[in-house]
Write a protein that binds this DNA or RNA. Structure first.
Lengths: 237, 237
DNA sequence: GTAATATTCTACTCAACAGTAAGTTCTGGC
DNA sequence: GCCAGAACTTACTGTTGAGTAGAATATTAC
């Protein structure tokens, strides 16, 4: 749902915002193009290996032009983060208002979350270092991320309460689910064998299988604390 | 090999390798101290926000001393990666030689993998960018990582074949599991509420629950990890 | 048209930091 | 007690890249 503007060429080729007639383009369109191009460059080469000159070159402009649209490099990364995060927040808002079991609602969120991470903003959301944003923006990112974490935990807890989900530790489960989804940003490349939607659907299936209660019949809790034997891992202090 | 010296103070405080009266220390010990200190610094501030002067200062030496032990900054990161990876490779080797169902063997690997990621080398293994190593070392890292990925897929496939594991897509499942585990490097901090072993055990439980077949099959008794907790809530349609 | 404003450019500054040259000090071997 | 080489230092170089000043050009308003 991110780039749904009907026939928007800047979605596939942001530099198009500058090409063609030098007519006064919408300021917002160009700003979006800057952000999207930056996100792609960061994804490809990393934040520190991407100079603003690189991004400018990809857009067919010069470095000061970028400063006309964003305050500095930090803020550029921050905007990439926000742009990518929006669909996830939307999905969570939707889930809050949707009726249904916790598990059903979580399934929807997992799907949309996965698609969002598979987007060009995935890197900025998942792999960018908080230290690269300043103290100010870093704290904002942290806050937004933990908000999402809490929302997922709430969904899990809801599912546990209504019996649609069976996990022992919702906090750990939330981390595990987030990890499985965020990891998409590490391995997925658009345009290969799988579409983002296929990946999302497959992960929904895998995770949902793990969340489901083991047996549909109620009222027979097993005292199961599966212990891993052979603990010969050296303690690190 | 890495930190096997019994009462080794350099494990907690690598700078100790230089302190004390004993000037001429073992070359290997100091080199390990350099690598471990670098790993911690990278974890804390990121690769690019850590200068070699920072690492040198943490060790109580000067920058050229670091060059006495490693060729350059890239190689330093690479060594951190290798150091962290070793326990994982060991766990996989062990699994290959161990009898038992695919699921049992995978459980062991997951545990040891999680502990390894929770180590001080977790950042270097998971979050370091391949581009920051050169083409040469980057390719080596990629190769080692994909080797691990293949091993996990093999374990999954083995479990599918012997009926102890039920997943539809082993490739996707391997990514999901790796993601859940690697994500530890993003959120876990040693010395807080949980020990590495506790985290590992909890994740083993969560993931194992997801891998288990839905209902017990004939001839393959499953360990009692299943757990259904029903609260008194009514089901909603 | 012309003034006002928006946009983009050229041409810089300045600091950070990887990496090095060349010298100094320590230590074990003899 | 002297030497060879290991270990470490001080003091540099060169480059890269973020960020800026101010001029130039385009676009809109009138």
């Amino acid at each position: 749902m991110a780039d749904s503007t009907p026939a928007n060429p800047t979605a596939t080729d942001p530099a198009a915002a500058w090409r063609g007639r030098r007519r006064r383009q919408d300021h917002g369109t160009k700003r979006d193009a800057v952000i999207r191009t930056a996100a792609r460059a960061f994804d490809e080469r990393g934040y520190h290996n991407t100079s603003l000159d690189d991004i400018a070159a990809a857009l067919g402009v010069t470095k000061p032009t970028i400063y006309y649209y964003v305050a500095n490099k930090e803020q550029l990364l921050f905007e990439c983060f926000l742009a990518g995060l929006e669909p996830i927040r939307a999905a969570l808002r939707r889930a809050e208002q949707t009726p249904g079991s916790g598990r059903d609602r979580l399934r929807e969120v997992i799907h949309d979350y996965a698609v969002a991470i598979a987007s060009e903003y995935g890197w900025c959301m998942v792999r960018a270092e908080h230290q690269d944003l300043g103290a100010e923006l870093g704290a904002q990112v942290r806050s937004l991320k933990s908000e999402i974490d809490r929302a997922i935990r709430r969904l899990l807890q809801g599912g546990i309460n209504d019996g649609s989900i069976a996990v022992t530790d919702p906090k750990l489960a939330a981390f595990a689910i987030a990890g499985a989804l965020n990891w998409i940003a590490h391995w997925y490349r658009a345009g290969r064998t799988l579409t983002a939607d296929e990946v999302a659907t497959a992960l929904v299936q895998f995770l949902d299988h793990g969340l489901a209660p083991r047996e549909p019949r109620a009222g027979k809790p097993l005292p199961a604390t599966a212990r891993v034997r052979r603990t010969r891992s050296a303690a690190r202090a």
